[in-house]
C-alpha cells in the first residue's frame, strides 16, 4: 500500500500542484483546506504531513501544535511550507514541533527528497 501524505493548504492550486507531484511519485494524497480541516483529516496511517503556514481558521503553527498535543498520530513527521519572507516563522514552526521545512517555490525533486528525508530519518 502506498504511503499516505496529508497536504494542508488553503490554496487549491498549491494543493493540486503538490498532489500531482506526490501522486506521480506513488504517494496517496489526502487534502485539507486549513489547519482545522487538517486536524480533522489526521489519521494514524499518514506518513508525512505537509502544511502551509498562512491559512485562515487555523494557521500552520497552530495546526502543528494541535497535532502534537493531540492523540492521533501525534509524532508524524510534519513539513512546513514557508515563503522566503517568512524566514522567521521557521523557528516558530520548529518550536511548535515541525520536523522540517521547505521554502516556496520548490521544485519536484526538492519536495520529494525532503519528504523522503523526514519519512525515513534512519536512511541517512
Amino acid at each position: 500500500m502506498a504511503d499516505k501524505i496529508l497536504i494542508v493548504d488553503d490554496s487549491v492550486s498549491m494543493r493540486q500542484m503538490t498532489n500531482m507531484i506526490l501522486s506521480g511519485a506513488g504517494y496517496e494524497v489526502v487534502q485539507a483546506v486549513d489547519g482545522k480541516d487538517g486536524v480533522a483529516k489526521m489519521s494514524a496511517d499518514i506518513k508525512v504531513v505537509i502544511t502551509d503556514y498562512n491559512m485562515p481558521n487555523m494557521n500552520g503553527i497552530e495546526f502543528i501544535r494541535a497535532v502534537r498535543s493531540g492523540t492521533v498520530n501525534k509524532s508524524v513527521p510534519i513539513l512546513m511550507v514557508t515563503t522566503e519572507s517568512e524566514d522567521s516563522k521557521k523557528q516558530e514552526g520548529k518550536n511548535a514541533g515541525a520536523t522540517g521545512w521547505i521554502t516556496k517555490p520548490f521544485d519536484k525533486d526538492t519536495l520529494l527528497q525532503t519528504i523522503h528525508k523526514v519519512a525515513n530519518p534512519l536512511a541517512f
Partner: peptide, 8 residues
C-alpha cells in the same frame, strides 16, 4: 496566497 502559489 497569490504570491506564494504564483511562485510555483
Amino acid at each position: 496566497t497569490i504570491k506564494g502559489s504564483g511562485n510555483m
